[in-house]
Design a binder for these strands. Sequence first.
RNA 1: GGGUGGUUAGCUCAGCCGGUUAGAGCACCUGCUUUACACGCAGGGGGUCGCAGGUUCGAGUCCUGCACCGCCCACCA
Length: 913
Amino acid sequence: MTSAQSPTRMPRAYNAADVERRIYQNWQDKNYFHAEIRDGEQPYVIIMPPPNVTGELHLGHALEKALEDALIRYRRMTGRPTLWLPGTDHAGIATQWVVERQLAEEGVSRHELGREEFIRRVWEHVDKSGGIIHEQSRRLGISADWERHKFTLEPGPSHAVRTTFVSLYEKGLIYRHERIINRCVRCATALSDLEVDYQDVDGHLYHIRYPLEDDPEKFVTVATTRPETMLGDTGVAVHPDDPRYDGIRGRNVVLPIMGQVIPVVGDEAIDPEFGTGALKVTPAHDPVDFEVGQRHRLDAPNVIGEDGTMTAVTGKYMGVERFEARRRVVEELDSLGVLEKVEPHSHSVGHCQRCATVVEPLISMQWFVNVGTHEQPDSIAGKAYRAVTGDGVNEPDIRIVPERFTRVYLNWLENIRDWCISRQLWWGHRIPVWYCGPCGHLTVAMEDPEACEACGSTDIRQDPDVLDTWFSSGLWPHSTLGWPETDRANNKDFDYFFPTTVLETGYDILFFWVARMIMLGIENTGRAPFNTVYLHGLIRDGSGAKMSKTRGNTMDPLDLLEKYGTDALRFALTTGTAPGNDLRFTENRLEAGRNYANKIWNASRFVISQMEGLHLTHPELVEGWSKVKPEHREDRWIVSRLDRVTAEVNRSLESFELGDAQQRLHEFIWNDYCDWYIEMAKIRVRNGSEPSPLPTLAHVLERILRLLHPFMPFITEEIWQTLKSELPEEGEAQAESIMLAPYPESGNRIDTEAEEEISLVQQAVRAVRNTRAQLRIPAAQHLEALVEANGQRAAIEAEADLIRAMSRVEPLRIVSGASESEGGNLRGVTLVVSPLVVRLPLEGVVDLEAEGERLRSELADCVRNLERVEKLVSNPNFREKARPDVVENEEGRLAELRERKERLDEILEQLGR
RNA sequence: GGGUGGUUAGCUCAGCCGGUUAGAGCACCUGCUUUACACGCAGGGGGUCGCAGGUUCGAGUCCUGCACCGCCCACCA
C-alpha cells in the first residue's frame, strides 16, 4: 500500500460504492444531462419508456436503461445535442389494482369510497411512492434529462390525450358501439385483445342433447366446454354440407332447462370434425358465436352479467356466480337425461393479464378506435404499415432492429382489429364525452361543457369510463415534447426534437406500445415518431425461465449494484448478447464485470503511479494525438491496435451492436493493453530508457477510458479525473468531465509493419514460455537462446530487451540465419516462428528423439495446410472470381507457409545429422 | 393453423456483406506470493458448427427438406 511506486490516491482495489454517489451528484449538479437546443445541429433523441408510477426497478429496466444510456452517452460525446427524456406512466389498471388491494386490507371497496375519494387516495399513493423507480434508476448512473420528466396525467400529456380523442372523434375514427368484448369481472372493466393472456386449461367437453321441436324422440347433440352459457343459446349451427344433419337444418330444437325453441342453421364456420359437428350458439358470450349469430340474425341475450353472475334472463339461476352456475347447470342437465357424456378436454382460456382472472366475453357498449386495415392507404393501420415497408417509392420512415421483428410487426397489423379503448376504471384520462339527457346528443369537446351543444340542456352527464393506458402511452414521443403545440414560437422542443431518433424497448411491448405510437404518432403529427426501433430481449434466469416474483427467481438490481458495482452490472447486462435476443443472467456475469472493472482500475493505478509528479509534456499528450506517431515499435503497435479497435467500436455503436463493441474493447484492454503493452512498457520504465513509454501508456489509457465511458460511466470518470491531473493542461483530455470529452475517432495510425513485427516478438515469447511450461523449467531460471532472424534482424535487435525480459532468456544471441548458428552447442529445442527460428540449448533436458517427433508433426501440419492453400491459389476459378484482397491474402499465407516449411526442413535435416 | 427464432467447446453465448488453422466469458487441468491487479499472471486440453441434400473456386455463414427446442399471434365449440 505504501510502497514507493504505489500511488497513495488510488486504493488497491476499485470500490464502486465509494465513488458512484459522489460522481452522480456532481454530474447532476453541473447539469450535464440537460439537452440544449442548438440550431442547425441534428439532435439525437430517445424518449425513455415510461415505467409504471408505482413500479420498482427490476433487471429488465436496468437492461433497458443501460442500453439507452450507452447510446445517449456515446452520441453526447460525439458532440450532438442529445436528449434523453424520462417519464412515468399512470398505468391505469395496474395502479388502481394496487390501491384497491390496500383498501381491501382496510375492508373498504372503492365503490363504498366513491369515485372522488378513491382518486384522491390513488394520488396520495402516487405522491408517496411515485418517484421511487426514478430514484432507483439514478443509481444506475443514467444521464437522463430529469428537468424534462413528464407524467402521463399532468397537464401537457393530458391535453394531448384530449386533443387526440376529439380529433379522432371528429374524423370519425373513434366510435361507440355494442360489441362482444373481453371483460375482467375482477377488475370490472373491458380489456383490449392484447390485455388477455391465453393459457391451456384442462377442462371438459360436455355433450348435450337438444330435442327436435317436432320430433322430441330425436335430438341434436352439441359439444361445449362452457355448459352454463347454454342458458343464452339462441341457435344451433352445423356445417351446411354435413350429411349427418341433412333434413335437420332449418328445423327447430328445444333448449333444455329454458324451454325456448331455437333454430338449427347451416354455417361455414363450423368444423364438422370437432365434437359432434354441432355448435350451440351463444352470441353474447363467445366471439365466434357472436359472428354466427349476426349472420343468422339470432338474438344475443347476456346471460352472464358484468359482475360474473348470471343475469335475470336465466330465471332461477339469476345471481349465481358463473362457475357455480356451471356446476348446477350440468347437474340439472344430467337429471333431465340430456347430458350424453363428459370428456376431458384441454383448451385455451383467456385470463386477465393483470389479475389472472378468467375473462368473460360479453356484449357491451364500448369506445373503439377504427384502425382500418393495413391495405387501406389512409387508414391508421395502413399508414403504420407503410411507415415500415415504405410506399414503393420512398424509403421506409422507420427501421426496426433487429430486422426480423419487422415481419412480426407487419403480421400483427395484417390481422389487426379495432381497438377497444374504454375502461370501466376510475384512474386515468376520463373520456371527454357528455351525454344529453333530453336529446341524447353526444358532446365531445376540448373544454368541459356546461350544456349540450345540440339542445343547450344542462342535463348532461360525462361518460364514466377512462381511456386505456396505452392510449396515452401511444402519444408519448410527441406528447412529452409539447404537442399539440407545434408552433416554434411557443414550443421549441417539439419543433426541434421531433421526430425522435431511436425508440429502445423490449420486444414484448412491440404491439402494446411501439405499434400504437407509430399509429397515433403518424395520425397526429403526420410523421413517424422515431427513425429506429431498437428492441432488446427478455432477461431470464440461469435455466432459461422468465424472471417473476411468483417464481421467486428475480434478482434486485439494487442489491447487485451494491455488491458488484454499477459498472459491473451494466457490463453484465449488455455484453455477450445480440440485439433482440434473450439473456440468461447469472452471478457469473457480474463477477466477470467486477473483475474487469478491477483490472482497469489496477492498470490505471500502475500508469498513474508512474506518471505522478512528472508533468509530462510530450506532443502525444498535448495536441494532435491522432497525428503523432510514436518512435518505438511497440508504441506504434499499441497505437495502431488502438486505432483499429476505435474504428470497430465506433462502427458497432453506429449499428447498435453494443455487445460487439464491448467485447472488442474488453479484448483490447485486457490482452493488448494490459497483458502485452504494459508489460513491454515496464521494461523501458525499469531501464529508464528514452524515449519513455509513459506518454503512450497515458495516451492509450485515456482513450480507453473515453471509449468505455458509455458502458461503464462511473469507473471511467473516476480514473479519468485522476489521470487528467497528471496530464498537460491542454488537449482533448481537458474537459470538465469525461462525459463531455469527445468520443475517440480512429486516427491515421494503423501500422501493419509494426503489427507484424510485434506479432513475431509475441509468438517467439509465447513459444519460449510454452516450452518452459512443458519442460517444467521454472520461470526464474534463465535460458540461453539464439534467434535466427532471417530478414528480421533489425526489428529483432531493436526488440531484444523485450524478448529477453518477457521470455526470460539470457543471454540472447541474434544471428542473420542458420548458417551463422551452426557449430554452436545449441542443440535442444528449436522453435519455428517463421521467418524466425528460436533455438534453446536444452540438450540433455529434452529427448532429441521426442523433439524430432514434435517437429515432424509440426511439419506435417504445415504441409497439409500448404497443400490446401496451394490448391486454392492455383485454381484459376479462384483467381478469377474471388475478391482481389482475398487472393492477395491467400498468396501471403502461401508464402508464409512455404517459409515455414523451409525452416522446418532445414532443422530436421540438421537434427538428422 | 399462421408467423418467427434457436440448435456452434462441459455451461452461457458472439460470429455483420460466404474468404486465414471457428472465437469470448465461465468451468476444467498444470505451474506461479514475477512490487498494477490472486477480482491476478503464464501455459494447456476441449468443437466432424443438429441431420441430409444443394448452390459456389470456397459454406458455421446462402438455398431446400427433416428432426428437436422456444417464443408470438389466432374466433381449438
